[in-house]
Design a protein around this nucleic acid. Structure first.
Lengths: 354, 354
DNA sequence: CTGTTAGCGCTTTCAA
DNA sequence: TTGAAAGCGCTAACAG
């Protein structure tokens, strides 16, 4: 029924092994033979059987990219960039040669699904796995992840972190690209302090996430360095990385802590919610309250006023992670690279009134 | 080295066949035997070999979801919803039972990559494929797609369209969920006409895309019904579905056609660019120029003023596509369903001056 | 440079 | 309800 490699071999009057060699291109084959084989492939419209090939070769061309939330451009941008390095440009024929199949898996931020996806990829004998975004800090999950990643690495799967801090005491991970969330957050708050703000509300991300913690720490470092501390707790509200969280938390801060002159959000999406809350509270941005975000997603510059935020080079990092996963680029020294975060001061922050 | 099904069988003192039956759960197995097998699986930390399993069974648990641009929430929302129906909730162990591996593939809008991904998925003997977003209208690509999809369907792969018009004369596609882009666009323009606008600029999407054409047709239907036609061409500018396109096209429209009182954009992202252009031109929204988008992505309500747009139920459609791909839901009559688009009139549109 | 020969690890009749 | 055995389609030594 379906045409197999043996059919191609018969048609090209060569052995199956030769066909395999032509297809994989890792072996010298006479040009005339190769042409004959390729012609037979086209004539028979042959499509390689992936499972059979993976079984025999004990490795597949699947590369998994894990993301927390595929609907969030933060992840979409990284995943797209990684995928572009992995899938290759193709040859324009749609025929598929030695390409890898780069696929993105959406964990929805659930630790169980993260592990499940890793198991599924392990099953498929994935060639590489890229994990994006912050990690959960729950010790038992971290331990489970370390074990699982070690097994994947053992089986020859290359593992790359992108926008995620390195795993302590693990050599399973080929490379870790970590964003300087702490430094970026510190500079952002310093910017607010320089403008004259003293009471700054902070809408943090979900608890137990490295990203949340690092950004919050950077913020508090700056506050402390300015001699401002004592009411960190009452000025901080935690919530998920979405617009609603920004809205709710900001309304809460505004109602409870009347004298807040600035709100720093965990990311740009949360910041949009914060902006809406400030306005619904009858206040203006930035005259009455300054608002700042994090990530510099494409829409941030279109907020009115344009959002002050911290730029993360998501596309560059994703692309680099993709190359590392393919073994096309050599890992940074020590397997760890920290990626700078740049302050983008824009219209949504200004000096407080009075 | 790596533990195989035979190892599990030995440890559980049963035959490999029995282990296979327990793992796949499609066959009667004595409870005591099953327990013994499951225990052995856990003790040995066994992970099924996907390729071997797929080879023997001639089908895999891979489900592909093709998107044009993974960094665009339009696709992210659909893909995430689809994936949530396919991946299943897991059992909380991260162990992975009969789950499918739902993966999203980013074509970047390139027809070649679309075909390449389908070939790659075909290689893997994917259980199902979901194609999201508008299709390219190039006849040769359409023909190639029809052929490829027919082959996939022949091989037992279920095919579902989500937000894409049905393929003419093809029974390869299990179900097509198409958005009512034309109707939505018509209602949007009618809304503008009712407000009193007469000269309406249109920033269209890329040429040769069904989405672009349908939305543009809806717009022109409304214009024509109002007796307004003749300068459609000069009032329409085509460009990609991104912010920059909206910005550039709008500046162009504003410079060239001074008297434009409203700009309709191909989607919300383009609309944000249009808003920025209107402002940079020294005009106010909506007092001087009204702006409208399409899709109602989450950020649209946060634009200032909030964006008038057309809501597409992306998450619902994605989830339904996921269920259809899994065979959990029965296809609509005729395999085709049209999904309504709802006008969301908000602050960015108002009556023109004078 | 090319052919022969064993498997890769699992599923699935067919029997028992 | 379980076991035995025959492949699934390909790759990778090993010869030649």
């Amino acid at each position: 029924m379906t045409v197999t490699l043996a059919d191609v071999a018969a048609r090209a009057r060569v052995s199956p092994a030769t066909v395999s060699r032509v297809l994989n291109g890792n072996y010298p084959v006479a040009t005339s033979t190769r042409d004959r084989v390729l012609r037979a492939v086209d004539e028979l419209d042959y499509v390689l059987n992936g499972p059979a090939s993976s079984l025999a070769a004990a490795t597949s061309d699947l590369v998994g990219i894990l993301v927390n939330d595929i609907a969030d451009p933060f992840f979409g941008i990284m995943a797209g960039a990684a995928q572009s390095q992995i899938g290759g440009p193709g040859d324009g024929s749609g025929r598929a040669g030695g390409e890898k199949l780069a696929v993105v898996c959406n964990t929805g931020g659930s630790p169980e699904r993260e592990l499940t996806y890793l198991t599924l990829l392990q099953r498929q004998r994935a060639a590489a796995v890229v994990l994006t975004g912050g990690a959960l800090e729950d010790p038992s999950h971290q331990a489970a992840m370390a074990v699982k990643l070690a097994k994947l690495a053992d089986a020859g799967t290359r593992i790359v972190f992108c926008g995620r801090p390195p795993l302590p005491d693990s050599d399973a991970v080929t490379a870790s690209l970590a964003f300087d969330n702490r430094g970026g957050a510190r500079r952002l708050t310093e910017h607010l302090l320089e403008l004259g703000h003293r009471r700054i509300g902070y809408v943090a991300g979900p608890l137990e996430r490295t990203t949340t913690r690092h950004r919050l720490e950077g913020h508090r470092e700056a506050m402390k360095a300015a001699g401002l501390h004592g009411d960190e707790e009452s000025l901080t509200v935690h919530g998920p990385y979405d617009r609603r969280s920004g809205y709710d938390a900001t309304r809460q801060l505004l109602a409870r802590e009347g004298e807040v002159t600035a709100v720093v959000a965990a990311n740009d999406t949360v910041a949009l919610g914060a902006c809406a809350a400030v306005r619904d509270h009858g206040l203006r941005i930035p005259e009455d309250v300054s608002v700042a975000g994090f990530d510099d997603l494409p829409f941030s510059v279109d907020a009115m006023p344009a959002l002050t935020t911290v730029r993360l080079p998501l596309a560059e990092a994703g692309a680099r992670a993709g190359r590392l996963a393919m073994g096309k680029e050599k890992p940074p020294a020590g397997g760890i690279a920290t990626i700078d975060a740049e302050l983008m001061a824009r219209g949504s922050t200004a000096a407080p009134r009075g």
